[in-house]
């Protein structure tokens, strides 16, 4: 059996498919329940009940929404670029799924445990802007186009500070492998010594996923619904799924870079009984809760405020922090030696 799976081509392909399914199916279920969680948590914060009709605690609401969305008519606006119009949601959705290949859920437990995992994540998340930009352009609608342009500028701006924050983390790790990044936090999670960068990364993640208070690309009060104003039915559904999957992915990145990934908070008995993947899920859930909490709390930023925050506050701050981290590690001799480690 092991011979078949590990040493023949067919076996390896079947194994790869099974691994992929083992990641994607829980992810899609998580996305479905994240929408429910968002509505429930927001409802609790606004002293409402939220969805409570379909199934116990509204548990089937996500599926009811999905069925409603699939059975609606797909409307393609006149003058839209048909191929690109349909390609955009597909791109957004598949990129959100692709990134999960490298997320480690336990020690070495990832579909692809590659050497440059963090760069892969950065590359995939920087591609996310294309779905939105293409959707905005292909819709042949002013609102959608404005939404797409806003989103492109916003995502490119915040990627810069995300990149610099990741560099300061990598300086302390000495490897680009996500598994090594988590293992480097055995003694202390990076959110403690790098707390300001944790905050910067978190806020940049909000901007990167177009979440409130940075949801200007959607900006329903001025752009109706922004880049997906012309979308309906399954195409809209794919955007929706992609956005929520991106939220979970960003929470996963925050957990791995700053909250110690699958590691328990303390290496002591009651904590180590809980398996690693569960710890990762707890941390992702915590981040998602804060995402929703922020949405229920803060009003939307104005566009110039958004750009000011990205370029004039986060960029200098993360740059200075990166240099300070490098200087500190050099001065104390703690700089990890790379010579063939990973």
């Amino acid at each position: 059996m092991a011979q078949f799976f590990y040493h023949t081509l067919t076996g390896q392909i079947i194994l790869m498919l099974l691994e992929t399914l083992a990641v994607l199916v829980p992810l899609l279920i998580a996305v479905a329940y994240l929408t429910l969680m968002e509505r429930k948590v927001m409802a609790a914060m606004q002293r409402r009940r939220g969805p409570n009709v379909n199934g116990p605690f509204g548990m089937f609401q996500a599926f009811a929404d999905a069925i409603k969305m699939i059975t609606k008519e797909t409307v393609i606006p006149a003058g839209a670029n048909r191929a690109l119009f349909l390609f955009a949601p597909f791109l957004t959705f598949s990129l959100a799924m692709l990134a999960w290949a490298v997320i480690p859920t336990g020690n070495g437990l990832a579909v692809a445990d590659i050497n440059v995992g963090i760069l892969y994540l950065l590359a995939i998340s920087s591609l996310g802007v294309y779905g939105i930009l293409i959707a905005g352009w292909a819709s042949n609608s002013r609102y959608a186009f404005l939404g797409g342009l806003r989103s492109a500028a916003q995502m490119v701006s915040y990627e810069v500070s995300i990149g610099l924050v990741i560099v300061s983390v990598l300086l302390a790790v000495g490897s680009l492998n996500l598994n090594d990044i988590v293992l480097a936090q055995r003694h202390i999670w990076f959110c403690v010594p790098m707390f300001p960068m944790f905050i910067v990364f978190f806020i940049s993640a909000l901007a990167e996923t177009n979440r409130a208070p940075f949801d200007l690309p959607e900006g329903e009060s001025e752009l109706v619904a922004g880049f997906f104003v012309e979308y309906s039915s399954l195409a809209f559904g794919l955007f929706f799924l992609g956005e929520y999957a991106n939220m979970i992915l960003m929470s996963g990145m925050i957990s791995i870079l700053f909250l110690g990934g699958w590691l328990p908070p303390l290496g002591l008995a009651p904590f180590t009984w809980v398996p690693g993947p569960l710890w990762l899920i707890f941390k992702i859930l915590f981040c998602l809760f804060v995402f929703i909490w922020i949405r229920a709390t803060f009003p939307r930023f104005r566009y110039d405020q958004l750009m000011r925050l990205g370029w004039k506050v986060f960029l200098p701050l993360s740059l200075v922090w990166m240099i300070a981290t490098a200087g500190f590690l050099m001065a104390t001799g703690l700089l990890p030696q790379v010579g063939g480690v990973n």
Binding site: L122, S126, V129, Y130, L133, W137, G148, A152, E159
Partner: peptide, 12 residues
């Protein structure tokens, strides 16, 4: 992720 986005941005 960066150069082509700006390119596309301008062309659009």
């Amino acid at each position: 992720g960066a150069v082509a986005v700006l390119f596309l941005f301008v062309v659009m």
